[in-house]
Design a protein around this nucleic acid. Structure first.
Lengths: 231, 231
DNA sequence: GCAAAAGTGTTATTAGTACACCCATGC
DNA sequence: GCATGGGTGTACTAATAACACTTTTGC
């Protein structure tokens, strides 16, 4: 039945049912001081956005399309997380999970396909969905130390305090203001604009943007993540 | 046809053929100053060891079993790399790739299932196999900087020059001997044995082993990589 | 005694950490 | 004038990088 040109060695096709492949996306956004994750809901069920792969399309493209279908826009960071085997409710699937970071600028209005829920309160999700969300948060935390990943959660213009707030929320601890600002400055990826923002009864804050050419040198995503091999 | 309890939103099952899922393992070992990768061969075909997932078994377990079936032993490092969609020779598959590091102590004798070939000369492999090998090497190089991953390529007892040689080969550049040794010492994961090894007409080298309790704090593999969610 | 790899210290630079006060604004 | 968050500098410590000679052995 399975007839690739190079058959498997030792472990052969038993003729048993093959697993489905399912893509799931953990979309994270930052608002009101916490991280939110997007969940879809149909009738009573709350779950991560999911779909199936399509022949002739890379998994990345499919995941992108899935997110666009749920959130309605397409400018976001997307990274494959992990694949795992899952047997639930009689169905055997291989889950391929993705992490997406999106900037909502605090606008968490309920969407047609679902809603944003606090990423630390995901009790309504299935166990497998919760595992994927936990791993997404773990990965985000880990990569924060050696990549510029958190930038994808920021709007085009932001204050340094806002940026620090995002870091502190993800890491779960406070950071020293002066050291944080020095670190950001030495990274050389921020450009101060001439604009400021008044936010209350105190001194206005300078607004910054990210330099367009900050090559993230992505450590985890292979260079060919978005293409399909031709062979 | 596809009937999970929570159906996908927007992108629905079209009833078209579903992809197969295939696991592929890049097993790397260090010998004679270079990295080797294990390739299986049946009749005229040379390819990475591959197999199919099994219901009720985690993908990690399956990959481990696959490697054991090819190499005949089971004590090795294994890490999931990436999943990608691949349409070749009329078959559509989702490839789930793994990186394994094994210690052969220079014994690259041809095995029943295949042979070791230089990891930089993989011309006989298919394009998709070559992509996976390239990414495995990339990941190994990247993780070398912030993990203890290279230890899995070493035999139980080794000299510091041998260890440095492995690092230099993976990184593709030379390292300063004194700085390298200092770094290894401050990591605190090496124990010097009282034994030495004479290797030629020069001073014998002290032999070291890795401390058994060096927790690698794996940055990329989720904690639940080896289990299946119970739903 | 010479070839060949093992082994060892110091200095300069850089990155990280800890820590406290003045500034601009609204009310 | 006071409450609020914005903004800044210095000193200590740890990690990194550059660099050269002595030691032990076989022949």
């Amino acid at each position: 039945m399975i007839t690739t040109s190079h058959a498997t060695n030792e472990i052969r096709d038993t003729g048993q049912a093959r697993p489905m492949v399912e893509l799931r996306v953990v979309a994270l956004t930052f608002a009101h001081g916490v991280l939110f994750t997007f969940v879809a809901n149909d009738s009573q069920n709350v779950h991560l956005p999911n779909t199936y792969p399509v022949e002739g399309e890379s998994l990345n493209e499919t995941a992108m399309r899935l997110l666009r279908a749920n959130l309605g826009f397409s400018e976001q960071y997307m990274e494959q997380l992990y694949s795992l085997s899952h047997s639930g409710s009689g169905n055997w699937s291989i889950l391929v999970s993705y992490l997406a970071l999106v900037c909502t600028e605090g606008d968490l209005a309920r969407l047609d396909q679902g809603e944003w829920v606090s990423a630390s309160a995901v009790d309504r999700l299935s166990e497998s969905d919760r595992m994927v969300v936990e791993y997404a948060l773990f990965r985000l935390r880990t990569k924060l130390g050696y990549t510029t990943i958190a930038f994808h959660l920021m709007p085009p213009l932001f204050t340094l305090s806002e940026l620090q707030n995002v870091f502190e929320t993800i890491l779960g601890r406070t950071l020293d203001k002066r050291n944080f600002r020095r670190r950001m400055a030495t990274l050389g990826i921020l450009a101060g604009s001439r604009q400021t923002r008044r936010d209350g009864s105190h001194r206005p804050a300078r607004l910054y943007r990210f330099l367009p050419d900050h090559d993230p040198t992505d450590y985890l995503t292979p260079p060919w993540a978005s293409v399909q091999p031709g062979e």
